[in-house]
Design a protein around this nucleic acid. Structure first.
Length: 171
DNA sequence: CCCTGATTCGC
DNA sequence: GCGAATCAGG
């Protein structure tokens, strides 16, 4: 994937918009965050606002040339539907409503939607829709989602909530 | 451990 | 020029 002008434009736009390199990479598709960062640097727009402008990082000392030939990780191709939000309920491990409440630290915070756009969604971002589709204010949760789940911790519970009354007289 | 960007270097 | 590897900080 070469950097076309449009690609670069979008890159700059997203970068300037405050999106992280990984976000931009996920949006662009076909590129890793490293590629994005590299490109950003080459373009000369590093450090848009504030970054780890502290220490000088550690420059490559040397002897890194001995790198095995493993630069082809075969792109797994992201599956972020950039058009329709298909309900890919694919709980491979059967989402059993376990009662093992795990009070780790704090309560599950949620109402903090990152206003994630359809493009910023990745494999590990909560795809919980917020707002009305079609409405300009429609967005997604965007929080960190559990591995294998399209939603974050909070929304997963809602999504996989066991039916309340299933004693519907089934034929 | 997850993420972030930064830098260097082989291609 | 490009991007992986690696680093370093949060």
């Amino acid at each position: 994937m070469s950097w076309t002008d449009e690609r670069v434009e979008l890159l700059k736009k997203l970068w300037a918009d405050g999106l992280s390199a990984s976000q931009v990479a996920a949006e662009l598709g076909g590129v890793t965050r490293n590629a994005v960062i590299g490109k950003v640097h080459r373009l000369g727009l590093s450090g848009r606002a504030k970054t780890t402008t502290s220490t000088q990082r550690a420059r490559r000392p040397r002897n890194q040339a001995s790198r095995p030939t493993r630069q082809a990780p075969s792109n797994p191709a992201p599956t972020v539907g950039a058009t329709a939000l298909k309900a890919d309920t694919k709980p491979q491990s059967a989402p059993q409503p376990k009662v093992k409440e795990k009070p780790q630290h704090d309560a599950v915070v949620v109402p903090i939607s990152k206003r994630a756009s359809i493009l910023t969604l990745t494999e590990n971002t909560c795809k919980w829709p917020i707002g009305d589709p079609g409405d300009g204010d429609f967005h997604f949760c965007g929080c960190k989602s559990e591995a294998g789940s399209p939603y974050c911790e909070y929304h997963s519970e809602i999504a996989y909530q066991p039916n309340a009354d299933r004693r519907r007289k089934r034929a």
